[in-house]
Amino acid sequence: MATDPTTPVARLRGGFSDWIADRVADLGAFMLDRVAAVGDVAIFTFRTLAWIVARRQRRDVLVPAFYQIGVLSLPVVALTGLFIGMVLAVQSYAQFRALGLQTRLGSVINLSLVRELGPVLAATMLAGRVTEQIDALESMGANPVYYLVVPRFLGCLVLIPTLTVMADFMGVLGGYLYSHLVLGIDYHHYWNNSREYVDAFDFLMGIFKSFFFGAAIALVSCHHGFHSGHGAEGVGRAATNAFVHSFVLILILDLFLGMWLNNVHDFFRPEGPRRLL
């Protein structure tokens, strides 16, 4: 009776050590999966870079990808940029007015935009996917990395920085329009304060980061597209995962690049951090 595994006590005892063993095994499997995934993406990145140099890029392959990434996403990036600029004005105004600093609104809106939000925004609007044409390419003896990944990689690398400029511009415009027309902050104060606290370094820092975001999105999304499960469900899940992983990666990259770029800034401007307020 005592050895009968179906009695509650035996089940509990066996169950508990089994439970621990299961959790340890799960953790191990989880870690192995992550390490394997990082290795996979690294190999994938290497193959992509190899194909960039291995074969001359074809115009008729690049142009459609660039069009898709650069032109078709422009309205979305511009619109979200405009609204983020306005939202920043709405959010910051109350705090600034409490301090009597509402005329400084322009500096904080524009600084946040060009350093952080513009690049992240332009990048997240683009975390797309590769569809079922991989098999078709392979069946015709054509390399899918060359035809599908390289154009998207180059497109993201070149065009996300330019989309960032667009997001910056629209955000600055949106922030100004709201501050001026709704909150009644005058033109002179808004822009003068902005000019004082936002400089070329801030702008270039945003652009610099966006190159990394572009490369990360292209590689993560294409990698998911290439390893999607079978059927419509698999493609759908791959697209969702590509978006989630790209988004997380962008934010992580943003943190570390931001920390590093602050050091770079202090190196070139040893007078110390600027004081916004």
Binding site: D60, P64, A65, Y67, Q68, T131, E132, Q133, D135, A136, E138, S139, M140, G141, A142, N143
Partner: peptide, 21 residues
């Protein structure tokens, strides 16, 4: 394998034409 595949035509369920071309 790539050159071997040129000897096989594959007609896909959804045609799998390239949308951009």
């Amino acid at each position: 394998l790539a050159s071997l595949r040129t000897k096989c035509g594959f007609v896909f369920q959804g045609a799998a034409l390239f949308d951009s071309l």
